[in-house]
Write a protein that binds this DNA or RNA. Structure first.
Lengths: 356, 356
DNA sequence: TCGTTTTAGTAAATCGTTTTAGTGACTTTT
DNA sequence: AAAAGTCACTAAAACGATTTACTAAAACGA
């Protein structure tokens, strides 16, 4: 057991111990005015006439007393919070987490932080949460897999959002390409009876994913059998929803040799349902996922999937918001509506050539 | 393609459009003083003498102009940020996400938000990130699976932290119980040669988990074979690290019939390594995980595991911080050092009775 | 030597609240 | 009729920075 005992002060009454020294204190100590300190510490033009010696005194004192400008005072004055808001469905499924990693990587460099809220697909929170963020004076909003249900003039960038709204940039996957990769892969392996699992209606990629897949199938002369299509239902981020969907398809008794799932999580559930009914993956049925979550490579069988570069998408979203903040007076008409990133087909062991 | 077009204002120069109306504006409009409005809107004792009629006028105007107190001004005055800081290793593995869901559930009710930072197990960020949070005036800190490397007088609560520091509360699993459940389960199934995968050194549960498991094994007369123990290495939250560890154990050529993995993610990697060398799970080797992540139920085979109530742990951590904030002048000596939550054994298909 | 420029600063306003300490005008008590 | 309340409010300080508009002295140029 670690006996890493550290001592901190006996009680917590002393608020000031945390807030530290103010510019006023420091100025009094140096016998200078607050103004001079501010000018020097922020390296403003007004400090030009102040001799280096005095500047050094100021810097030394700031260092010695570990002066940090008060965040609220500074933000109040500057009307700037150095904070973005991020709206996500919820955090535990790994999808949003990957995007947030990218967001944070970019923001940290610029001294920005972010507040997160989860809407859990609830209509009230979808409106309320962003409003709370705006009251908190966030300078911009990143919405991950989340529809925009709130008005604002702040910069807004979505990740996997598909609402066409003036002034809002959507960072999206090249879905045409993704569908081509996925359907093409299965087609090349000889599959002609393919089952599809559609996403939940609330998921912002559901529609476009389905449209592009339909097109890619049509192009190859595949027709989509309604009995081989099921939709995910329920908002828990668990493979269970995929399991239920696959059970439904199996109940249709229509033969098929491959499944293109909405995402990896539902692919995992599908595999379970298939194996329960005696079908082996990939010998009897090939399964293709989407996203490439960490576990995908280590499932049994390892999952073939379409990778979305979620980390990059998070970075791109954050960069886009920061760019807009840096440019004063942006013409909304010139904000790009869409930024596209490319998917990648990752072939593993859950797909195989169709049996003769 | 959704044609959900909405119109927002043509350009973004108008800062005020977002910040809204101030108390000053409102007071001028009503012909009253700022003081009166503040008193009435905050329902302070000073408003007792103000007639209901005037109060109603104020409320109506506030409603009409959608008045919201400026967050910075209020916080500057009150020296209160209504914000906590949360420090995590990183966000994409689902573990921290689950905890954050719990944290948010509690904070949202109280009008609190939280800022997140990831330290990526880097020593510099382990110090720097919490300091940044403190400069941002967070009122308390929740550290998830993260060692405390910074001094502060703020309330600090860890989730799965084991440093014994005065004034810091650790929300932890009952590890004795967890070890008993895990080792007991394998023992009951007849396993006597058990392999173990230890966590990475940076993971705060590694030590205690190992100690309690060793005890539980000893208690049953099992001796732990060094060749059957491997430690996770590398800080990516991927099953790959478990795969590598299991390869190492297999290379030792020492026979065993069960594996107790550090967590579900490494259990997944282990299963892959076992099956690659021709061992079937659970017929030849039983595999026991830890955490019960979402995917655990849907692996093939479905993973037997020890569930940690991460969502509850997040809630408990947040509640504990808020409690400390509500009580002024807390005696540090009276802050509980540990809050314990109970694990649960979830039996699925990756464990089975040992072959005769 | 007078006028201008440079040097070395500072006072005060401002951001938008909250809070303390009042101020007059009425009303009630004795 | 004077003293003591109550009623309906308000002025001003404070939180801690930034920024604009100054001042007073020294140095410089003609």
């Amino acid at each position: 057991m670690s006996e890493n005992k550290q001592q901190i002060s006996k009680n917590r009454e002393s608020k000031t111990s945390e807030t530290g020294v103010s510019l006023k204190n420091l100025a009094a100590h140096l016998g200078l005015s607050i103004t001079s300190l501010s000018l020097v510490l922020n390296d403003k033009p007004g400090a030009n006439s102040i001799p280096q010696e005095t500047k050094d005194r100021i810097f030394r004192a700031a260092e010695e007393f570990n002066y940090r400008p008060n965040y609220f005072a500074r933000s109040l004055r500057a009307q700037k919070s150095f904070t973005l808001g991020v709206v996500v469905p919820e955090l535990s499924d790994g999808y949003s987490g990957m995007v947030l990693n990218g967001v944070e990587a970019v923001l940290a460099k610029e001294g920005y932080f972010y507040l997160t809220t989860s809407h859990l697909h609830r209509d009230d929170l979808l409106k309320h949460n962003p409003q709370m963020l705006i009251e908190r004076q966030v300078e911009g909003i990143i919405a991950v897999d989340t529809p925009i249900r709130f008005p604002t003039n702040l910069p807004v960038v979505t990740v996997s959002g598909h609402d066409k709204i003036n002034g809002i940039t959507n960072v999206v996957l090249n879905h045409q390409h993704a569908a081509e990769l996925g359907v093409g892969h299965l087609f090349t392996l000889g599959h002609r009876q393919i089952a599809f699992i559609k996403g939940q209606d609330f998921s912002s990629d559901t529609k476009i994913r389905w449209e592009t897949i339909s097109e890619a199938a049509l192009k190859r002369g595949l027709k989509i059998e309604p009995k081989l299509v099921a939709q995910l239902e329920g908002d828990i981020p668990s493979p269970e929803v995929g399991y239920v969907a696959m059970k439904k398809i199996l109940a249709g008794k229509k033969p098929f040799t491959a499944v293109f799932a909405f995402n990896d999580v539902s692919a995992i559930g599908s595999i379970r349902a298939l194996e329960e009914s005696g079908l082996r993956v990939p010998q009897d049925v090939s399964v293709l996922g989407f996203d490439d979550i960490y576990a995908a490579a280590f499932l049994n069988p390892a999952l073939t999937t379409i990778r979305q570069p979620l980390f990059e998408m998070g970075k791109l979203a954050a960069q886009t918001v920061l760019n807009q903040l840096a440019n004063t007076k942006i013409d909304v008409a010139k904000i790009p509506q869409t930024l596209t990133v490319e998917p990648e087909l990752v072939i593993r062991n859950s797909t195989a050539a169709v049996k003769k």
